[in-house]
């Protein structure tokens, strides 16, 4: 089955991940800009990071037949340095021009401070000005419900195209308001701290499959890109058809990411050939 991994921090992973993902059907990954584990001090550090994910990483993925796309952002954890954020934002347009950059992300909130909200607004604004997609991170654990509510409040005050915005890391207590407001949502599968494959399938069964993306994130922390395949297995084990699985795990990423014409992978449909078709 062909799979798209829509949120994947490739630079934190080894080539072995690419190899195993390719062997398991992954045809494309999209890499949002991430936190490095420490707060960066210089705009140039971001610029080189963006070059790495928009220029070098696609070549590494291509060795395994995987298409690699990326996003640019200052991470919410680094928003407490507004001067740095402003400087980095000035460079976004040059990356929007790159052939594999899909938009702005992952921006969003961590502790939902004023600086974080200001940074989120600035990120969304520049994305909308340049016709880019947006990927929004929502906080972890105890901060999630409040942070997601603040994200929705910030967005509600802006003139945005909701179908071009993906609010990520939703869980059972945050999915409904995001879907009801017209945004795309993402389930992020982590071994411990975010959603699990089984819970993700529960939500797919409860809320349907429209405007939902499933991803593994897979970064330098405790994470596993193959939680996505685990989720597909759980989905199929519950009796959902191959086509339904393809719709969620391949076609939905095509539908959202394909709003940027640079993402040119098309949705697919399984077709059973008749005996005549096989012998023809």
């Amino acid at each position: 089955m062909q799979i798209i991994q829509p949120h994947y921090h490739a630079i934190a992973r080894t080539a072995q991940d690419y190899e195993r993902m390719a062997m398991s059907g992954v045809v494309a990954v999209a890499e949002p800009a991430f936190w490095a584990g420490f707060d960066r001090l210089y705009p140039e550090t971001f610029i080189d990071y963006f070059r790495q994910i928009s220029e070098f990483e696609p070549t590494r993925a291509a060795q395994y037949g995987i298409r690699h796309f990326s996003w640019v952002a200052v991470n919410p954890k680094e928003a407490e340095n507004p001067t740095l954020t402003r400087e980095v934002l000035k460079h976004f347009p040059e990356f929007f021009a790159k052939p594999t950059v899909l938009g702005v992300g992952e921006t969003g909130l961590h502790k939902s401070t004023k600086n974080e909200c200001d940074s989120l607004e600035a990120h969304v604004e520049i994305a909308m000005q340049h016709g880019q997609l947006v990927l929004i991170h929502t906080p972890h654990l105890a901060d999630k419900a409040h942070g997601t509510k603040r994200v929705l409040e910030v967005l509600a005050g802006m003139n945005v195209d909701r179908e071009r915005i993906w609010i990520d890391h939703v869980e059972e207590q945050t999915i409904r308001p995001c879907l009801d407001a017209g945004y795309w949502v993402g389930f992020t599968l982590y071994p411990i701290t975010k959603c699990s494959p089984k819970r993700a399938v529960d939500m797919l069964e409860k809320y349907g499959t429209e405007r939902i993306l499933v991803n593994s994130s897979a970064d330098w922390g405790p994470s596993d890109p193959f939680t996505l395949q685990e989720c597909i297995l759980e989905y199929r084990r519950r009796g959902h058809s191959l086509q339904e699985a393809i719709d969620v795990f391949h076609n939905n990423p095509c539908r959202f990411l394909g709003q940027n014409p640079k993402f040119d992978i098309q949705p697919i449909r399984v077709e059973t050939l008749s005996r005549e078709g096989i012998s023809a």
Binding site: E172, P191, I192, K198
Partner: peptide, 9 residues
């Protein structure tokens, strides 16, 4: 916490 959420689910 993770295991309890799995049980809740």
């Amino acid at each position: 916490r993770h295991m309890l959420l799995e049980i809740a689910a």
